[in-house]
């Protein structure tokens, strides 16, 4: 036996200290969320009621607009993101082009959202001449969430055990048959979760829709086609809080609360779907 340096502190005590320390840190990260939600309720709770959510001069148009925006974003981003993830994780080799694509995706994730907004303004609103509308906003947001969706989908595909793929290939399945019949069904839960989390992120983004989709007030707040402008919650909140005088601050806080609740709600749905699909066997 080697002679060891005696412990300066009883290991049982240092274990205790470490455990308590990590517990406190973990607890600390939940405090901001709880604090924010409680503060919003404290400032805006008095005006939150059903009326606020459903009346035309309440939040109803903004909720509808954001719902449209987020749905269309998902519709655009999902096929592209999942397709790219399938290519990168299943088909792409180790070539130079693939490395460049990966680098591009990583950097895309690092671009500030206001830059997306400006890009969307230039490309969709002006060059393609769609105008400030639902479509331009959704396309811009789709670009923003694309890297997130690709990363989440790739991760979900990687989680599918190699044994399942080989089992399928060994039975004479082509690569695409294997992907469609074995890999994708097993990666679906993870993909959907990633999708919803990304979309929840998009729901709260302000800068990308600032120049591309949203208005503060519209004579007709409900878009009839995707080329109509919309009223969206984050932008509504931004204008209410910064530019409109004479607005009851309680209304602003109530709106903030609803926005956060929507995002948290989407996250909860994602968690729920994930746990449901995990339990499903076939």
């Amino acid at each position: 036996m080697n002679v060891r340096r005696p412990h300066l502190i009883d290991p049982r005590i240092s274990q205790r200290v470490a455990f308590t320390g990590f517990w406190l840190v973990a607890l600390f990260v939940t405090l901001p969320l709880v604090g924010i939600v409680l503060y919003m309720l404290y400032r805006g709770g008095s005006v939150i009621n059903w009326q606020l959510l459903t009346s035309m001069d309440g939040l109803y148009p903004a909720i509808v607009g954001t719902t449209y925006l987020v749905s269309l974003t998902a519709l655009i981003a999902a096929p592209v993101g999942i397709g790219a993830a399938i290519y990168l994780s299943e088909y792409a080799g180790r070539g130079k082009l693939v490395r460049m694509i990966r680098l591009a995706i990583i950097n895309l994730a690092g671009v500030p959202s206001v830059v997306y907004g400006l890009f969307g303004l230039a490309l969709f609103v002006i060059i393609l001449d769609w105008g400030r509308c639902l479509m331009s906003g959704a396309a811009t947001l789709a670009l923003l969430v694309l890297p997130l969706i690709i990363a989440a989908s790739e991760e979900a595909l990687r989680q599918v055990p190699r044994g399942l793929r080989e089992g399928s290939l060994a039975l004479g399945a082509s690569k695409w048959q294997t992907i469609r019949r074995v890999v994708l069904p097993n990666a679906l839960a993870g993909m959907i979760t990633g999708m919803i989390l990304s979309v929840a992120r998009a729901a709260g983004e302000t800068a990308p829709i600032l120049f591309t989709a949203a208005f503060y007030s519209l004579s007709n707040p409900f878009p009839r086609t995707v080329f109509d402008p919309i009223i969206a919650m984050p932008f509504q909140l931004y204008v209410t809080a910064t530019e409109e005088p004479h607005v009851d601050p309680a209304f602003t806080w109530a709106m903030a609360f609803v926005l956060v609740a929507l995002v948290l709600g989407l996250n909860l749905v994602a968690t729920f779907i994930r746990s449901r699909l995990r339990r499903r066997r076939w």
């Binding site: 044994g163 399942l164 080989e166 089992g167 399928s168 060994a170 039975l171 004479g172 066997r281 076939w282």
Partner: peptide, 15 residues
């Protein structure tokens, strides 16, 4: 691969 089938070390039934 249909003619030459394979059984793996870890049983790999599809879910």
């Amino acid at each position: 691969r249909r003619r030459v089938g394979q059984v793996f070390q870890q049983p790999n039934p599809f879910p």
